[in-house]
Design a protein around this nucleic acid. Structure first.
Lengths: 206, 206
DNA sequence: GATAAAAACCCCCTTTTGGGGGTGCCAAAG
DNA sequence: CTTTGGCACCCCCAAAAGGGGGTTTTTATC
């Protein structure tokens, strides 16, 4: 075993991608065969690169990293995706793992963890960096997790729609929307819409 | 001229700091004499490091980068601060430059721009990366800029306080708060509080 | 086949917000 | 010396949100 692992990095921070390329190269375990700074760039070259591992940032300039992850795993099932992001929010981790990622690293993890993670994922394992591992092991009740409908509702509330507008948009009774809104306030422990929006954005629930 | 420039990096993303250290070293123009992953870490060693340039991320885990920049420039006026961050928001750039930074780089700038920036700032110039330079040159009317009172108000609104609560907190008439609230909605082009909070957070006005 | 959770719906009543107007004071910039 | 912008204040009234209670159906999961 232990042949060199081919890696592609997708992240819009050129400083990070350039630095990481050097680091991986110097490590001897992996080689960066491609770098993309957006989903589009990646889409154009991935078929040619065909890496073993794809390091993916969730905050891409042109589309949601979660969406892109879903797209990649269905088009290229042999390419393992290792999320490498700034967020350590339960919601983000869970969403990207549900969409086909094989691992999750936060950017302030140790550099060695990146190497360990790449090797683990290349061997078919699922890898979570220490910090995220702890996060996922916490009892489920303490985590913020919303149903599909609730997330949809939250998005529309954050966009500033009133109950009646939301009702018209998704063909439901305004009373139903009111119910969801109240429940969201309760679930997220928000006093009013202002705090609700704040929590939604901070926890990347949208 | 052209002696090697001593640089310190303050950023909590260890992957970025490690990569950047290698990049700067390889460039031959600068040397990383210290790395800190938090304001506290930096505070403990800066007196010993005494670099020419300090690369500073605004989103530190333990305190606001803007505050920390202010602190550093007053304590160590000879150390030039070059902000290196993810944000290209007018408000963030303006605030950090007002607090003593000598330059501003966004993380998705070209790696070469970092080198150019470091050299420029070391020569006593003010350096803005291309993207930010364009941003600052845009006519002032198109930029979001709030007065001190307005920012204070916005913070309290985002925290979920009602007009009456804010009034009680800062000893003003509830009608005054109402006036500010209306004006904020107008200035930021928000339809209601939900959108106001969203814009405030996204543009880092708080 | 029970249990639980999500989804959709309803009423009463109070508080808060938002849209529209308006006033006056003071300091800095032109 | 006038204009502009920040700051503080006021009224009316309609719309929206929030606090409290409730019901039913469907859809998983055990």
């Amino acid at each position: 075993m232990d042949r060199i692992i081919n890696v592609v990095i997708v992240d819009d921070h050129k400083i990070l991608t350039d630095g990481l390329r050097t680091l991986l190269h110097d490590s001897g375990i992996a080689k960066v065969v491609g770098i993309a700074h957006s989903a589009t760039e990646c889409r154009n070259s991935i078929g040619f690169w065909m890496p073993d591992i794809l390091l993916l940032d969730v905050s891409l300039p042109d589309m949601s990293g979660v969406e892109f992850c879903k797209e990649l795993t269905s088009l290229y099932p042999t390419v393992k995706i290792l999320a490498l992001t700034t967020h350590n929010e339960y919601s983000v981790v869970r969403q990207i793992l549900e969409n086909g990622a094989s691992g999750y690293l936060v950017k302030n993890a140790m550099t060695e963890e990146v190497l360990i993670g790449i090797q683990a994922v290349a061997n078919g394992e699922v890898f979570l960096c220490h910090e995220v591992d702890l996060l996922m092991k916490k009892p489920r009740e303490t985590q913020l997790w919303l149903s599909l409908r609730e997330r949809e509702m939250l998005k529309l509330i954050v966009e500033g729609l009133t109950n009646t507008e939301i009702a018209a948009r998704i063909f439901l009774s305004p009373e139903t929307i009111r119910g969801y809104r109240k429940n969201l306030l309760l679930k997220l422990g928000a006093k009013n819409t202002a705090v609700l929006v704040k929590i939604a954005i901070e926890h990347k629930l949208i």
